[in-house]
């Protein structure tokens, strides 16, 4: 009884707006199953030609990094400037590199 009374699960929706682009998170919605989630996403999030492909993931399956650990996770990348192409000082005559 309690399972059928409960709310439809929440799904996160990802849409590819154009061929060649990544799927991007656009929001969420409720649906009883994956098929319905895709159709609901089509009706809710692509009413104005916003998409060519849809991914749906049940929200409870998303694992997120912890914002409290943001420092440890992301700050160490800040001082590795040598990973970026602009770090290197090369003569202007050098083309196509």
């Amino acid at each position: 009884m309690s399972t059928t009374k409960s709310e439809w699960p929440l799904w996160e929706i990802f849409i590819r707006s154009r061929q060649g682009l990544d799927h991007k998170h656009v929001g969420s919605l409720h649906a009883a199953d994956a098929q319905m989630a895709i159709e609901n996403a089509r009706d809710v999030y692509t009413r104005r030609m916003e998409g060519v492909s849809i991914w749906v993931v049940e929200s409870r399956h998303i694992h997120a990094s912890n914002p409290a650990e943001a420092g440890a996770l992301y700050d160490p990348a800040n001082d590795k400037a040598y990973r970026h192409p602009t770090f290197y000082d090369l003569p202007d005559e050098l083309k196509h590199m």
């Binding site: 399972t3 009374k5 439809w8 199953d33 319905m36």
Partner: peptide, 11 residues
């Protein structure tokens, strides 16, 4: 809403 839940569960 209950019917859709029940069907999803069965499937």
């Amino acid at each position: 809403r209950e019917a859709a839940n029940a069907y999803a569960e069965k499937r």
